[in-house]
Protein backbone atom coordinates (compact mmCIF):
# COMPACT_ATOMS: atom_id res chain seq x y z
CA UNK A 1 0.00 0.00 0.00
CA UNK A 2 2.72 2.38 1.08
CA UNK A 3 4.69 1.50 -2.04
CA UNK A 4 1.71 1.91 -4.31
CA UNK A 5 1.07 5.37 -2.89
CA UNK A 6 4.70 6.28 -3.40
CA UNK A 7 4.58 5.01 -6.95
CA UNK A 8 1.44 6.94 -7.75
CA UNK A 9 2.70 10.19 -6.27
CA UNK A 10 6.04 9.91 -8.04
CA UNK A 11 4.19 9.02 -11.21
CA UNK A 12 1.98 12.07 -11.07
CA UNK A 13 4.90 14.41 -10.42
CA UNK A 14 6.89 12.94 -13.28
CA UNK A 15 3.76 12.75 -15.40
CA UNK A 16 3.11 16.48 -15.29
CA UNK A 17 6.64 17.15 -16.46
CA UNK A 18 6.26 14.69 -19.34
CA UNK A 19 2.93 16.33 -20.04
CA UNK A 20 4.57 19.73 -20.30
CA UNK A 21 7.25 18.38 -22.60
CA UNK A 22 4.68 16.56 -24.70
CA UNK A 23 2.66 19.74 -24.93
CA UNK A 24 5.71 21.55 -26.27
CA UNK A 25 6.10 18.89 -28.97
CA UNK A 26 2.39 19.01 -29.83
CA UNK A 27 2.34 22.80 -30.16
CA UNK A 28 5.07 22.62 -32.76
CA UNK A 29 3.67 19.56 -34.50
CA UNK A 30 0.30 21.20 -34.94
CA UNK A 31 1.78 24.34 -36.39
CA UNK A 32 4.55 22.97 -38.59
CA UNK A 33 4.15 19.17 -38.85
CA UNK A 34 7.60 18.79 -37.37
CA UNK A 35 8.43 16.78 -34.28
CA UNK A 36 11.10 18.90 -32.70
CA UNK A 37 13.50 16.32 -31.32
CA UNK A 38 15.88 19.19 -30.57
CA UNK A 39 13.45 20.29 -27.88
CA UNK A 40 15.43 18.18 -25.42
CA UNK A 41 18.84 19.82 -25.91
CA UNK A 42 17.15 23.22 -26.16
CA UNK A 43 15.68 22.71 -22.70
CA UNK A 44 19.04 21.40 -21.52
CA UNK A 45 20.79 24.57 -22.69
CA UNK A 46 18.30 26.88 -21.01
CA UNK A 47 18.58 24.92 -17.77
CA UNK A 48 22.34 25.38 -17.91
CA UNK A 49 21.78 29.11 -18.32
CA UNK A 50 19.78 29.06 -15.09
CA UNK A 51 22.48 27.00 -13.40
CA UNK A 52 25.23 29.40 -14.39
CA UNK A 53 23.29 32.32 -12.91
CA UNK A 54 22.43 30.41 -9.74
CA UNK A 55 26.03 29.27 -9.30
CA UNK A 56 27.11 32.89 -9.73
CA UNK A 57 25.11 33.73 -6.63
CA UNK A 58 21.85 34.96 -8.09
CA UNK A 59 18.58 33.63 -6.73
CA UNK A 60 16.91 30.48 -8.01
CA UNK A 61 14.02 32.56 -9.29
CA UNK A 62 16.21 34.80 -11.38
CA UNK A 63 17.74 31.71 -12.95
CA UNK A 64 14.29 30.25 -13.44
CA UNK A 65 13.03 33.36 -15.21
CA UNK A 66 16.18 33.63 -17.29
CA UNK A 67 15.80 30.03 -18.44
CA UNK A 68 12.21 30.54 -19.52
CA UNK A 69 13.07 33.76 -21.28
CA UNK A 70 16.04 32.25 -23.07
CA UNK A 71 13.80 29.34 -24.05
CA UNK A 72 11.45 31.81 -25.66
CA UNK A 73 14.29 33.45 -27.57
CA UNK A 74 15.94 30.17 -28.55
CA UNK A 75 12.66 28.79 -29.89
CA UNK A 76 12.05 31.89 -31.95
CA UNK A 77 15.58 31.91 -33.33
CA UNK A 78 15.50 28.24 -34.26
CA UNK A 79 12.21 28.64 -36.10
CA UNK A 80 13.06 31.87 -37.86
CA UNK A 81 16.59 31.09 -38.95
CA UNK A 82 16.70 27.33 -39.32
CA UNK A 83 13.40 25.49 -39.46
CA UNK A 84 11.70 28.07 -41.67
CA UNK A 85 13.77 26.86 -44.58
CA UNK A 86 12.59 23.26 -44.50
CA UNK A 87 8.95 23.77 -43.64
CA UNK A 88 6.68 22.24 -46.21
CA UNK A 89 9.49 20.25 -47.80
CA UNK A 90 10.23 16.58 -47.31
CA UNK A 91 9.31 15.12 -43.98
CA UNK A 92 12.57 13.24 -43.65
CA UNK A 93 14.62 16.41 -44.12
CA UNK A 94 12.82 18.17 -41.31
CA UNK A 95 13.47 15.25 -38.99
CA UNK A 96 17.14 15.12 -39.93
CA UNK A 97 17.37 18.87 -39.40
CA UNK A 98 16.11 18.66 -35.83
CA UNK A 99 18.54 15.81 -35.19
CA UNK A 100 21.39 17.88 -36.59
CA UNK A 101 20.39 20.62 -34.18
CA UNK A 102 20.30 18.00 -31.45
CA UNK A 103 23.94 17.12 -32.09
CA UNK A 104 24.99 20.77 -32.37
CA UNK A 105 23.35 21.84 -29.12
CA UNK A 106 24.75 18.82 -27.29
CA UNK A 107 28.28 19.54 -28.39
CA UNK A 108 27.94 23.25 -27.71
CA UNK A 109 26.69 22.61 -24.19
CA UNK A 110 29.55 20.24 -23.50
CA UNK A 111 32.04 22.82 -24.73
CA UNK A 112 30.54 25.79 -22.95
CA UNK A 113 29.22 24.21 -19.75
CA UNK A 114 31.34 21.05 -19.51
CA UNK A 115 30.28 17.41 -19.63
CA UNK A 116 30.44 16.55 -15.96
CA UNK A 117 27.41 16.06 -13.76
CA UNK A 118 26.45 19.22 -11.90
CA UNK A 119 23.83 19.42 -9.20
CA UNK A 120 20.88 21.70 -9.73
CA UNK A 121 19.15 23.28 -6.75
CA UNK A 122 15.46 23.11 -5.91
CA UNK A 123 13.57 26.06 -4.46
CA UNK A 124 11.44 23.87 -2.20
CA UNK A 125 12.01 20.86 0.03
CA UNK A 126 12.94 17.54 -1.49
CA UNK A 127 11.93 15.59 1.61
CA UNK A 128 8.50 13.94 1.58
CA UNK A 129 5.72 15.42 3.68
CA UNK A 130 5.13 13.82 7.07
CA UNK A 131 1.64 12.46 7.81
CA UNK A 132 1.60 11.06 11.35
CA UNK A 133 4.78 8.96 11.42
CA UNK A 134 4.81 8.04 7.76
CA UNK A 135 6.58 10.05 5.13
CA UNK A 136 4.79 10.20 1.83
CA UNK A 137 6.48 10.60 -1.52
CA UNK A 138 5.06 14.06 -2.13
CA UNK A 139 7.68 16.76 -1.70
CA UNK A 140 7.49 20.51 -1.61
CA UNK A 141 9.24 20.60 -4.95
CA UNK A 142 6.78 18.02 -6.26
CA UNK A 143 3.89 20.32 -5.37
CA UNK A 144 5.69 23.20 -7.01
CA UNK A 145 6.18 21.08 -10.14
CA UNK A 146 2.50 20.30 -10.42
CA UNK A 147 1.50 23.90 -9.75
CA UNK A 148 4.02 25.35 -12.21
CA UNK A 149 2.86 23.09 -15.02
CA UNK A 150 -0.77 23.78 -14.20
CA UNK A 151 -0.17 27.55 -14.28
CA UNK A 152 1.52 27.33 -17.67
CA UNK A 153 -1.27 25.19 -19.07
CA UNK A 154 -3.98 27.54 -17.86
CA UNK A 155 -1.99 30.38 -19.37
CA UNK A 156 -1.83 28.62 -22.71
CA UNK A 157 -5.54 27.84 -22.66
CA UNK A 158 -6.33 31.49 -21.95
CA UNK A 159 -4.04 32.59 -24.74
CA UNK A 160 -5.36 30.16 -27.34
CA UNK A 161 -9.03 30.28 -26.44
CA UNK A 162 -9.41 33.78 -25.15
CA UNK A 163 -7.37 36.13 -27.31
CA UNK A 164 -7.25 37.25 -30.92
CA UNK A 165 -3.56 36.40 -31.02
CA UNK A 166 -4.36 32.85 -29.90
CA UNK A 167 -7.04 32.60 -32.56
CA UNK A 168 -4.58 33.70 -35.22
CA UNK A 169 -2.03 31.16 -33.99
CA UNK A 170 -4.55 28.34 -34.11
CA UNK A 171 -5.69 29.37 -37.58
CA UNK A 172 -2.10 29.35 -38.86
CA UNK A 173 -1.58 25.92 -37.39
CA UNK A 174 -4.60 24.51 -39.19
CA UNK A 175 -4.24 26.08 -42.61
CA UNK A 176 -1.44 28.44 -43.50
CA UNK A 177 -2.73 29.51 -46.88
CA UNK A 178 -6.25 30.28 -45.77
CA UNK A 179 -4.85 32.14 -42.78
CA UNK A 180 -2.71 34.29 -45.02
CA UNK A 181 -5.73 35.11 -47.16
CA UNK A 182 -7.45 36.18 -43.95
CA UNK A 183 -4.63 38.57 -43.16
CA UNK A 184 -2.84 36.49 -40.55
CA UNK A 185 0.93 36.98 -40.53
CA UNK A 186 1.60 33.27 -40.56
CA UNK A 187 5.38 33.52 -40.33
CA UNK A 188 5.15 35.52 -37.13
CA UNK A 189 2.64 33.11 -35.67
CA UNK A 190 4.95 30.18 -36.35
CA UNK A 191 7.88 31.96 -34.73
CA UNK A 192 5.75 32.76 -31.74
CA UNK A 193 4.48 29.17 -31.58
CA UNK A 194 8.02 27.78 -31.52
CA UNK A 195 8.99 30.35 -28.91
CA UNK A 196 6.10 29.38 -26.64
CA UNK A 197 6.77 25.68 -27.14
CA UNK A 198 10.41 26.17 -26.25
CA UNK A 199 9.36 28.06 -23.14
CA UNK A 200 7.21 25.13 -22.06
CA UNK A 201 10.06 22.76 -22.90
CA UNK A 202 12.42 24.87 -20.79
CA UNK A 203 10.03 24.68 -17.89
CA UNK A 204 10.08 20.89 -18.03
CA UNK A 205 13.86 21.01 -18.26
CA UNK A 206 14.01 23.07 -15.06
CA UNK A 207 11.56 20.79 -13.29
CA UNK A 208 13.40 17.60 -14.25
CA UNK A 209 16.69 19.17 -13.15
CA UNK A 210 15.44 20.50 -9.78
CA UNK A 211 17.15 18.70 -6.92
CA UNK A 212 18.98 16.44 -9.36
CA UNK A 213 21.97 16.40 -11.66
CA UNK A 214 22.34 18.02 -15.03
CA UNK A 215 24.73 17.12 -17.84
CA UNK A 216 24.42 17.52 -21.59
CA UNK A 217 22.41 14.30 -22.01
CA UNK A 218 20.09 14.61 -19.06
CA UNK A 219 17.05 15.41 -21.22
CA UNK A 220 17.61 12.66 -23.80
CA UNK A 221 15.26 10.27 -22.08
CA UNK A 222 12.69 13.00 -21.54
CA UNK A 223 12.33 13.68 -25.25
CA UNK A 224 11.42 10.02 -25.70
CA UNK A 225 8.92 10.13 -22.84
CA UNK A 226 7.50 13.40 -24.11
CA UNK A 227 7.13 11.95 -27.58
CA UNK A 228 5.46 8.79 -26.25
CA UNK A 229 3.10 10.91 -24.16
CA UNK A 230 2.27 13.08 -27.16
CA UNK A 231 1.59 10.02 -29.32
CA UNK A 232 -0.59 8.53 -26.59
CA UNK A 233 -2.66 11.67 -26.84
CA UNK A 234 -2.75 11.59 -30.62
CA UNK A 235 0.13 14.05 -31.28
CA UNK A 236 -2.37 16.66 -32.41
CA UNK A 237 -4.18 17.29 -29.19
CA UNK A 238 -2.85 19.47 -26.36
CA UNK A 239 -5.31 17.93 -23.93
CA UNK A 240 -4.32 14.50 -25.15
CA UNK A 241 -0.67 15.35 -24.53
CA UNK A 242 -1.41 16.26 -20.95
CA UNK A 243 -3.44 13.13 -20.27
CA UNK A 244 -0.84 11.06 -22.13
CA UNK A 245 1.90 12.57 -19.97
CA UNK A 246 0.11 11.68 -16.76
CA UNK A 247 -0.65 8.14 -17.92
CA UNK A 248 2.91 7.62 -19.01
CA UNK A 249 4.28 9.05 -15.78
CA UNK A 250 2.17 6.62 -13.79
CA UNK A 251 3.03 3.62 -15.97
CA UNK A 252 6.74 4.32 -15.93
CA UNK A 253 6.66 4.91 -12.21
CA UNK A 254 5.05 1.49 -11.78
CA UNK A 255 7.74 -0.11 -13.92
CA UNK A 256 10.44 1.70 -11.99
CA UNK A 257 8.98 0.74 -8.64
CA UNK A 258 8.11 -2.89 -9.31
CA UNK A 259 10.54 -3.99 -12.04
CA UNK A 260 13.60 -1.80 -12.15
CA UNK A 261 14.47 1.73 -13.19
CA UNK A 262 16.87 0.44 -15.86
CA UNK A 263 13.95 -0.86 -17.88
CA UNK A 264 11.93 2.37 -17.82
CA UNK A 265 13.05 3.44 -21.32
CA UNK A 266 12.31 -0.06 -22.60
CA UNK A 267 8.83 0.16 -21.09
CA UNK A 268 8.36 3.49 -22.85
CA UNK A 269 9.37 1.84 -26.11
CA UNK A 270 6.90 -1.00 -25.57
CA UNK A 271 4.08 1.44 -24.76
CA UNK A 272 4.92 3.53 -27.82
CA UNK A 273 4.92 0.54 -30.15
CA UNK A 274 1.70 -0.78 -28.67
CA UNK A 275 -0.04 2.54 -29.25
CA UNK A 276 1.35 3.06 -32.73
CA UNK A 277 0.42 -0.41 -33.88
CA UNK A 278 -2.91 -0.82 -32.12
CA UNK A 279 -4.31 2.68 -31.86
CA UNK A 280 -2.29 4.87 -34.18
CA UNK A 281 -4.51 7.90 -33.67
CA UNK A 282 -3.83 7.93 -29.95
CA UNK A 283 -5.85 6.62 -27.05
CA UNK A 284 -8.67 9.08 -27.52
CA UNK A 285 -8.98 8.90 -31.27
CA UNK A 286 -12.42 8.38 -32.67
CA UNK A 287 -12.83 6.02 -35.58
CA UNK A 288 -10.87 8.37 -37.82
CA UNK A 289 -7.85 6.46 -39.07
CA UNK A 290 -4.50 8.10 -39.09
CA UNK A 291 -1.39 7.39 -41.03
CA UNK A 292 1.58 7.05 -38.73
Amino acid sequence: MQQLLTTVLTGVTLGVVYAAFALALVLIWRATRIVNFAQAPMAMITTYIALVLIDAGYSYWLGFAAALLSGLVLGAVVERFVVRFVSGKSEINAVILTLGLFIVLHALAAIVFGSRYRSFPAPFGLRGFQIGDTTIALTGFGVFTVVAVAVVMVGLVLLFRGTDLGLRMRASAFNQEVSRLLGVKVGRMLTLGWALAALVGSLSGLLIAGGGLVHPSYMDGVVVYGFVAAVLGGLDSPVGAVVGGLLLGLSLSLVSGYVGSELVPLAALVILMAVLLLKPGGLFASVRERRV
Partner: peptide, 20 residues
Protein backbone atom coordinates in the same frame (compact mmCIF):
# COMPACT_ATOMS: atom_id res chain seq x y z
CA UNK B 1 -11.13 27.37 -46.95
CA UNK B 2 -13.33 26.78 -43.93
CA UNK B 3 -11.14 26.27 -40.86
CA UNK B 4 -13.04 23.20 -39.75
CA UNK B 5 -11.22 22.85 -36.44
CA UNK B 6 -12.45 26.26 -35.30
CA UNK B 7 -15.98 27.25 -34.39
CA UNK B 8 -18.23 29.09 -36.79
CA UNK B 9 -17.88 32.23 -34.72
CA UNK B 10 -14.10 31.96 -34.61
CA UNK B 11 -14.05 31.66 -38.39
CA UNK B 12 -16.08 34.83 -38.60
CA UNK B 13 -13.89 36.64 -36.08
CA UNK B 14 -10.87 35.86 -38.25
CA UNK B 15 -12.57 37.68 -41.11
CA UNK B 16 -12.80 40.87 -39.10
CA UNK B 17 -9.26 40.46 -37.76
CA UNK B 18 -8.05 40.48 -41.36
CA UNK B 19 -8.90 44.15 -41.65
CA UNK B 20 -7.23 44.73 -38.27
Amino acid sequence: GVLAELTVEENLRLGALGSR
